[in-house]
Structures are given as structure tokens and as C-alpha cells.
Nucleic acid binder design. Structure first.
Lengths: 131, 131
DNA sequence: ACATTTGTATTAACTCAATAATACAACTGG
DNA sequence: CCAGTTGTATTATTGAGTTAATACAAATGT
């Protein structure tokens, strides 16, 4: 599994792992039911402590992305499951709340936010370069 | 000026000050041109070190909310100015980009994001309790 | 003029999240 | 059955960010 980390990128290593695995799953490069590398294996590959990978896997499990089978390994869970989806929406809702609170502080109207969302989405569609 | 802080609320004191002053300005309770309390005065009122307030004021200046006149005090800047507004929109645009990137990772459609934004905004309108 | 008030700068202490070191517990599967 | 592999738990270290202590610089305004 191709995962690359930047140890001093400001964003925590465990978070980088979470993000990349989320992406691999969302893009279908990691299919439902597929087994992830063992914690120690990925830790050795990334040159980090197993605990760091363990934390990433724990968060992924909480988010409903993977399932851990105690001593049998970690597997990509069924993404279409309502639980997984509900969890995703919950996370996004939190982000949106923060965004709206900030917009209100800045005295920017809801309509404008909606407009910006659509505008930015369109921009991302065309320039498929950076992540 | 009514500012209240919760020293152990997780969110840094200087950030709390920034947020509250932003809110006071956005809501018009601090008018453009009005003078803010001197750094030391507010620091004493809040029982914190002057540096903490100084940092808050510095961030507010960077955000275009206030202007500092070296030895003459700190004043609310003209919020209606296109520059200040452009800056605000720029910040929000960054937030939105991050949100959309995350939504894409999570395989949640744009339409749903727009729906959530409106939904959450409505929710915030009704329950006027928490910030 | 110059005492006072303004914001600024530097350094140190503290706090907390992230990571590592190490040891543990439990199931698999030959 | 038991050696090897899985995830787990506990504690220590590190490092970045926040706050404080203290001293500085500059302009006001009477």
C-alpha cells in the first residue's frame, strides 16, 4: 500500500495516515473487505512507532472506515453502510458549523457562502492538479 | 467593553479575545473608528498578561479588524472597506476549499454540502444559545 | 520639555498533544 | 498445543504553541 508521510509538515503523522487511507478507500483503490497492512508492518515501512499507526487505525475504526478483528487484522469496512455514512456526515456537519460561525463573525451572509461553495467546487472540478 | 474569558476552556485566551472583539465589531457594538481599551487596561481587566492581549490585537490588525496607531491607541478600522471585505472572503474561501476537499474524500456530493449548509444555518438561527 | 501612556521585543516557564519505548494480552493456524 | 502474529496498554519523551515576566522604544499632550 502506497502511503507517504512528511514528518515535519505540521500535520501529525497519524493524521496523514488517516487522510491517505480515507482517500485510498474513497477512490476505490482499497476495496471493502480488503485487509490493511498490520500495524507493525506499516509502522516499519513509514519508519514510525507502531503506536502512531495504531492511533490512525483507531480513528479510522471510529469513523467507520475500517474494522478491527482483534488478532486477525484490520479490514476495510463496507463503505455504503449507514453507520459509516452517518459518521461522515457528522464530521462534515461539524466543519460546516465552524464555517458558518466564522462567516457570521465576519458578517458575511449565508447566500454568499452558498455561492462561494458552488464557485469553489466548480474551480476544483476544472483544475484537477493539486490535492 | 464586555469581554469574558474562560481560562481553561481549551481555546487559547488570545483567541477568545479575538473572537469576541470580532463579534462585537460584526454586531456593531463596536463602531468603526472607536478606540479599544489599551492593552494593559484590558489585560488587567481580564487578569492576564499584557502580551496575551497584545497578541490578540496583533491578529485583529492582521485580519484588518483594527488599526494600531503606535502610541495613540488601537481603533476599530473601517469594516466596510473593500480591502477588509476581500480579506474576509479570502479566508472563508480557504475554509470552504478544505471543506470541499474533505467532502470529496468522504464521497459526499456537493448538493449535500449545500443542503447541510442551509440546514445548519437554519438550526443556528433558531437556537441562539451557544456561540 | 518630559512624565505618562501607548505598543513592542525578548526570554523563560508552562502546558498539552504527538510520538516513542516497552511490555502486555489474546487469537490464529499449522 | 503453542509459536508467531495480531491489536492493546502504560509510561516517558519530545516539541510546538501559549502565557508570563520583564525591559524597551516612541509619541502624546498638557
Amino acid at each position: 500500500m502506497q502511503i507517504h508521510i512528511s514528518p515535519h509538515d505540521g500535520v501529525p503523522i497519524y493524521q496523514q495516515v488517516v487522510n491517505q487511507i480515507k482517500y485510498l478507500v474513497a477512490s476505490g483503490r482499497l476495496a471493502a473487505g480488503e485487509e490493511l497492512p498490520a500495524i507493525r508492518v506499516l509502522a516499519e515501512q513509514l519508519l514510525v512507532n507502531p503506536n502512531t499507526v495504531a492511533r490512525a487505525y483507531r480513528e479510522l475504526e471510529t469513523a467507520g472506515i475500517v474494522e478491527k478483528r482483534r488478532t486477525a487484522g484490520t479490514y476495510v469496512s463496507d463503505q455504503g453502510s449507514p453507520l459509516a455514512r452517518r459518521e461522515r456526515v457528522k464530521i462534515l456537519t461539524g466543519r460546516i458549523d465552524a464555517l458558518l460561525a466564522e462567516a457570521r463573525h465576519m458578517d458575511v451572509a449565508l447566500e454568499e457562502i452558498v455561492k462561494l461553495v458552488q464557485q469553489r467546487h466548480a474551480a476544483m472540478q476544472s483544475t484537477r492538479n493539486e490535492e
